[in-house]
Nucleic acid binder design. Structure first.
Length: 859
RNA sequence: GCGGAAGUGGUGAAAUGGCAAACACACUAGCCUUAGGAGCUAGCGCCCAAAAGGCUUGCGGGUUCAAGUCCCGCCUUCCGCACCA
């Protein structure tokens, strides 16, 4: 009776016990100093926002990272495996509004709750390096970097149209606008407002960010492609069309690109410029304002176009917009041939791409063709296809495979040659130049919010913009503050914060009241982990040099653009500041799939959320974690099925029973060596047939070691790793009778069980710790070397080799594993079934692949 | 439209060009029992009453002795970007 009770796997008892022991051992998961002599391995999972609750996506992400970290520890690496909190952000303010809790308090208590969840999952983090971005000891370095970027001209202020979310009452970065709506409020349309904002000059690194992608071979192609698209490099030419009449009034400012006599257009196909039959301006173009100032009728029509564009942008289908345009009544002169073309305003021209103006070439551009057809503008052929292929006779012909016609002195040139020559002419005559345009915009970092890093700048009436001196950092976020949803920065309503003396003149001055985008925090946090308590610098450069780049970064693909492009930018800036020597933050990136339930991503609105706490309470952390690795390969979406968790939990129970049952035998085998390894080394054959069970088990064991080791080295199909361990356990359990009868020698039992436990260590750490102790092993399993597969023991003596006739399976023959081609062929031909099939026919050819197959080609 | 990924049993899935469906879930039958969300045994792609046999990796071609895997052309689904000039 008592025995039956003992044979019960009880994670609810085992897991907290080990968690307490681990918490009491700060060295267990701690990285060692660079001098330790071991190779380093930095494995990092993306830090969570402290919402207060882990979700299954987190569990999956951290289970992958933790398995890898544990494996690398066992491989003898010096592993850095840290965790922290992306702790600034709007939800804390919303919670403050709702519950009247200060954002700091709300955030810190959420962190405490999530940390408890992580510990309850048994995740192996070095909490001594924990980073919390909302604490002054962290965000002071955001401010420090900000000042360095101001000094380098990489942070600057400009008045600009910004994306304003009425719901958040703040500005959003371009990256935070999704289909014209706020990324946090999917139904809230983002407005455009004119504000003076701080920007980081990420465009200064556009080319390097693009080029660097080619070298990031350890990053998923998908992420690299997304970043390439986002950067959106496009080579072309800027050309000035001259205004037919000078515009004398209503001028915009220089920086809006307005001149009295010219319109600058951007084109990727300057070779088609002789076919330009109109110039099209964006409704927001400065010149349009000049035209409309004296033309109320035009003004009204332009307002309409603007409205259409805005609506399309808001609806997220700018691509579907019906093209409309109005002629301004003004004309422009093509600088190459003096052709006089009408200037139009069109709703599909974007003000913020290129120059906000295009030349329209309906003969060689689908979109221009459509527009010209609609409005009856002339269509001219200026490129003729080299070969007359089907469909190439009629316009628009958009290929670059052609030669110029109707293009004056340029006739007969190929498109590419013409582009070069036309660019040279433009440059020589000072009406244009070759340019590269990027879709990437500078990073707007100002936020009119409270819960973020204060921007360390001061506005002085006499001295203008003044940096907060380094020795006055951090600029502390005031604690006592009333949060309201009114517009403007909450910090602006705190006189004690706003009113300061100017560091330069000592006179009265006002602080900047905007805070930084929280993506600033996450752009460099992983550097801080290496030296998290440094009070004099963001980090020690030598320590960073040792640990960087990150060996493996793991997180969701939803961060493919924002976080990962900002992080790359930040690394390059720090490199140029002389703080780091690496060009990229992470050598390898892994994006795990989403956790799905009932066909949808888990979400509150779908009501399909599974709570990690609930899973841990019912099945244990080991089962929840192992299931999240077993149910699908890590890069694919995972369909969460509770039955599956239960199944894994039953498997772990089987491991527990099997190991505890034979642990006494195993312990008795300690110190003795079993005979198989040494004897087989000599003649390659087992000495004694009675040892068949032991050999079979050892063979399976060493095959399993080889498989799992290989997977950790790159393929990462942890689902098949777990499956392989299940097969091994099934094999051992299948020999239960022989084990019970003592037919397997104690040293063999020891090797079997000990290795089984080691193999399971990356996946189910609590169970493993318990069984490790049960087997009489001391110390942490993390300090035990990862098992090595013995190829001699893994080798099969005999194989079943399939025999095909004309590629169809007929039978299998059993042969010695090392049988050569001749032997195999003979065995196949001797087989009865084969004999029957080939009787009366001619064997034309025999393909023999030793160990794999025999294929007879028969006629 | 451009780019990325995927399509295999009732389900999640497995398979360096070499026996398709390992491992598990669910299901079915049986056993055991101190009745548990337990354990053990067996079955489980499709066709045929069964066996023998045949068929089967979204569709159509091709390469090869041999294709889920490689090549070409389609279809479908998911994801990202998109009148970007």
């Amino acid at each position: 009776m008592a025995e039956e009770n003992e044979l019960r796997y009880d994670p609810a008892a085992i897991e907290p016990k080990w968690q307490q022991r681990w918490a009491a051992d700060p060295k267990l998961y701690a990285a060692e100093p660079a001098t330790c002599g071991k190779p380093k391995y930095y494995v990092l999972e993306m830090l969570p926002y402290p919402s207060g609750q882990l979700h299954m996506g987190h569990v999956r992400n951290y289970s992958i990272g933790d398995a890898l970290a544990r494996h690398m520890w066992m491989r003898g690496y010096n592993v850095l495996h840290p965790m922290g909190w992306d702790a600034f952000g709007l939800p804390a303010e919303n919670a403050a509004l709702k519950n009247n809790t200060p954002p700091r308090e709300w955030t810190l208590s959420n962190i405490a709750a999530m940390k408890r969840q992580m510990e309850r999952l048994g995740l192996g983090y070095d909490w001594a390096t924990e980073v919390t971005t909302c604490l002054p000891e962290y965000y002071r370095w955001n401010q420090w970097f900000f000042l360095r970027m101001v000094e380098k001209g990489l942070a600057y202020r400009k008045k600009s149209k910004v994306n304003w979310c009425p719901e958040c009452a703040t500005v959003l970065a371009n990256e935070q606008v999704v289909d014209g709506c706020c990324w946090r409020h999917e139904d809230t349309i983002v407005e455009q407002r004119d504000l003076v904002q701080w920007f980081f000059r990420i465009t200064a690194y556009a080319q390097e960010l693009l080029d660097g992608l080619d070298k990031l071979e350890g990053w998923p192609e998908k992420v690299r492609t997304m970043q390439r698209n986002w950067i959106g490099r496009s080579e072309g030419t800027e050309v000035d069309f001259f205004l037919a009449e000078e515009i004398g009034q209503g001028l915009g400012t220089r920086d809006q690109g307005l001149e009295k006599t010219r319109i600058r257009v951007f084109t990727t196909r300057v070779d088609t410029i002789f076919g330009a039959t109109s110039v099209q301006l964006a409704p927001q173009h400065a010149l349009v304002a000049a035209f409309t100032a004296s033309d109320p009728d035009l003004n009204e029509k332009v307002a309409e176009l603007l409205e259409q564009q805005k609506k399309a942008r808001e609806a997220g289908d700018l691509g579907e917009i019906e093209k409309h345009g109005v002629p301004t009544g003004h004309f422009a002169i093509n600088p190459y041939n003096g052709a006089r073309v009408p200037i139009w305003v069109a709703n599909y021209i974007l003000a913020d791409y290129g120059t906000g103006a295009i030349m329209s070439v309906p003969g060689h551009d689908e979109r221009d063709f459509e527009f010209a057809t609609k409005y009856g503008l002339p269509i001219v052929e200026v490129i003729r296809p080299v070969q007359k292929t089907e469909g190439a006779e009629h316009l628009p012909f958009v290929s670059e495979e052609g030669v110029l016609v109707n293009s004056g002195e340029f006739d007969g040139l190929s498109c590419t040659d013409a582009q070069k020559l036309l660019q040279e002419v433009a440059a020589r005559s000072a009406f244009g130049e070759a340019t590269v345009t990027y879709r990437l915009k500078d990073w707007g970092v100002s936020r009119q919010r409270y819960w973020g890093t204060p921007i360390p700048m001061i506005h002085c009436e006499r001295d203008g913009l003044v940096q907060v001196p380094d020795d006055q950092l951090p600029v502390l976020l005031p604690e006592q503050i009333e949060i309201t949803q009114q517009g403007g920065s909450p910090l602006g309503r705190v006189p004690a914060f706003v009113n300061v003396t100017c560091p330069k003149c000592g006179g009265p001055a006002k602080r900047e009241t905007d805070t930084m985008d929280t993506f600033v925090d996450s752009s460099w946090y992983f550097y801080r982990y290496t030296d998290a308590r440094n009070a004099n610098a963001p980090f020690d450069s030598e320590t960073v040099k040792y640990w960087f780049p990150i060996d493996q970064y793991i997180g969701g693909v939803e961060h493919a653009i924002l976080h990962l492009i900002y992080s790359r930018f930040w690394t390059k800036v720090m490199r140029d500041l002389g703080l780091v020597v690496n060009d990229e933050p992470a050598r390898r990136l892994f994006t795990q799939g989403m956790v799905i339930k009932d066909g949808h991503k888990m979400s509150k609105s779908k009501g399909n959320v599974v709570s990690p706490d609930d899973m841990v309470a019912r099945y244990g952390a080991d089962a929840a974690r192992t299931y999240s690795l077993f149910a699908a390969p890590p890069d694919r979406d995972l369909d969460w099925k509770e039955d599956g968790v239960a199944g894994v939990s039953r498997f772990l129970a089987r491991v527990w029973r099997l190991t505890t049952r034979y642990a006494p035998v195993a312990r008795a085998g300690r110190g003795e060596s079993h005979p198989f390894r040494s004897e087989r080394g000599k003649d390659g054959a087992p000495a004694d047939q009675s040892t068949g069970v032991s050999l079979r088990l050892l063979r399976k064991l060493h095959q399993t070691i080889a498989k799992i080791t290989l997977d950790f080295e790159g393929r990462w199909h942890f689902n098949t790793c777990v499956a392989a361990i299940m097969e091994l356990v099934n094999e051992i359990q299948g020999a239960d009778a022989q084990l019970a009868a003592g037919e397997v020698a104690p040293p063999v039992v020891l090797e079997l069980l000990r290795t089984l436990v080691l193999l399971l260590a990356p996946f189910a750490p609590h169970l493993v710790a318990e069984l490790w102790e049960e087997l009489g092993e001391g110390g942490s399993v993390l300090r035990a070397p990862w098992p090595a597969s013995d190829p001699e023991l893994a080798r099969e003596d005999e194989l079943e080799v399939p025999v095909q006739i004309n590629g169809k399976l007929v039978t299998v023959v059993r042969v010695a594993a090392d049988a050569d081609a001749k032997t195999l062929e003979a065995a196949a031909l001797a087989d009865e079934k084969v004999q029957g099939r080939i009787a009366g026919k001619t064997v034309m050819k025999v393909i023999v692949v030793p160990r794999k197959l025999v294929n007879l080609v028969v006629k």
